[in-house]
Design a protein around this nucleic acid. Structure first.
Lengths: 332, 332
DNA sequence: TTGTACGCGTTATCAG
DNA sequence: CTGATAACGCGTACAA
């Protein structure tokens, strides 16, 4: 691949002049500029970002660390991220952690060695975030917040979403509401549960242990759990699933028992499951402002890249939206 | 961020020795090696890939260019790609083209300037591919093949898939089969249509113009088209949709006319639509070997990176699979 | 308006 | 086994 020297030689000017038509086009006579551009074209010259990065100490890249791009939520989010990043002139490096802390740490290290200008991370472990902070890397946490850490973050108001969803279900007359939650390690999981409990007690309904289940955010576990719950004597009349995978497990469980949604069991969940707009019944769910989550994450990261010493930490919670479909029946 | 010089100074050795513990650990006494490693740890030193890239002329990155990561097919594919790329020691840069040739060209240029070691591209335009070839970049075409170009590629045998699917429908007794295809610009589109036509004529069925429609791979157009087709006097009894978006449009069209799948209209398609494993009726479809498509693309690209002068061009077509669900009725 | 000299962080070469 | 020196391709003073 041609270098700036090749261009300079062929155009019979110094490399500096070539460099200038790239960076300070006004500082070079339009005549030589034209000639140089021609030569660049002929040679198919593309300035080397790697050389440029070395001297400018900026790579114009940002690293994205997430659990799994196959998850609808994450790929939609990434799409918004890539679009805005590109507008700001950044290229995105992407990798998946599968919620594995070791991989997460390794990947973070890899990004560091690539000298990305900043990192957008949907973290699983606090370790990698702390590591990044010690390394003074520009970083924005997405979705999962660690309140004890002084970092920029963008997340959804999961508490609010859970309240909205729970109150909707309660409003329909349900009292025995089953909850499919995670192990309570991640921030969104805890917030959603907090929101659920709040809405319940605010309506004078007791949260019973047997109806609150840890499904590990896994389809298979949710499937078994729901099958068991629905066959119990005091089975819940409605289910609140905290995550798409668990929702899918729940639907399959209901199907396997030949229970109809919403006639036999009502179902609501966080996030939209794939195909929800196509098939019936559509599941009533909490829709996160995914695009905004992406745009804001990039906006905040770019601001920090441009002003690394900025004292103020930005942390925002965006409001989610209740999308009502046909998965709940009214209890009379 | 600490440099190799900082480490060298603090460990009271030359930078060369530090460099060696990273690259030729055997060429340095274990004693000094240990000391140096300690210092690296203390300083949180991460070797700079950008400096390293400059001298080695290798960035250990590969660029992925695709239409849209939100498409299930592409995000699954990318996942397989990222996994294998990482195993080979590469980090992935990812961007979306939305099938826009101008964006595609720009993004390709950006990747070039970042000096990626190779590019995996699901191309829309032949232009960008030619450009890449002229620039002598290592490149593997994925899914969309340009037969006139001497490039490595990995694709599915779309012809074979279309034949299988069409014969299945014909075997069920259908004769009036509607086709929702694209404009015939892209390779898979053309191959699928070729396969369809072959299967039809092999069974002595004429392909009628009115049942072959160009839907531009868009949900909205497919929706309108299918509504129109289904209301015609000699409406098809079965529909073959070439792509997920069009399939969704078709389902919505059938729903809007209160036509049941498969009772009133049978439907088959290429690729699995989101949620197909959850809802009923599941749509009978052609499943591409997505993971293999990803793994092989990386494998071939890596081989070319390691041996850029390799004369032989690798081109492989993987066989797709017919997945039978409940979206077709038998014609008696 | 254009050019010279140096540095960015690493590795390769060649001595010691 | 270890070190000095010269690249790698480009941008930034500072000169001319």
């Amino acid at each position: 691949m041609a270098t700036i020297h090749d261009v300079a030689r062929k155009a019979r000017v110094s490399v500096m002049t070539v460099s200038r038509v790239l960076n300070r086009p006004d500082k070079v006579s339009s005549k030589t500029a034209r000639k140089i551009k021609m030569v660049m074209e002929e040679l198919g010259y593309q300035p080397s970002q790697v050389a440029r990065s070395l001297v400018k100490r900026r790579t114009n890249t940002i690293g994205i660390v997430m659990p799994d791009i196959k998850n609808t939520f994450f790929n939609s989010w990434f799409r918004a991220v890539e679009d805005s990043a590109r507008q700001f002139g950044y290229t995105t490096l992407l990798c998946n952690t599968d919620e594995n802390p070791d991989d997460e740490m390794k990947l973070v290290r890899t990004f560091l060695s690539h000298r990305v200008d900043g990192i957008l991370i949907v973290p699983h472990s606090e370790e990698s975030v702390k590591y990044l902070m010690r390394a003074k890397v520009n970083i924005v946490l997405v979705d999962r917040v660690f309140k004890s850490l002084e970092v920029d973050f963008v997340s959804t108001d999961h508490y609010d979403g859970a309240v909205k969803l729970t109150e909707y279900v309660i409003g329909l007359g349900h009292r025995r509401i089953g909850v499919l939650k995670g192990p309570g390690i991640l921030f969104p999981d805890r917030e959603r549960y907090r929101g659920f409990c709040h809405a319940m007690s605010a309506n004078g309904i007791e949260v019973t242990r047997e109806h609150v289940r840890n499904c590990e955010f896994k389809e298979s576990i949710a499937y078994e759990t729901v099958r068991e719950m629905l066959q119990a004597k005091s089975a819940p009349t409605a289910l609140f699933s905290f995550n798409s995978l668990m929702t899918i497990g729940a639907i399959k469980a209901a199907n396997s028992l030949a229970l109809k949604i919403p006639d036999d069991i009502s179902l609501v969940c966080y996030d939209e499951i794939p195909g929800n707009d196509i098939f019936t019944p559509g599941i009533t769910h909490i829709l996160q402002p995914i695009d905004e989550l992406g745009k804001n994450a990039v906006r905040i990261l770019v601001r920090r890249i441009e002003d690394p010493n900025r004292k103020l930490k930005d942390g925002i919670y965006l409001k989610p939206e209740l999308v009502i479909r046909e998965s709940c029946r009214t209890m009379t």
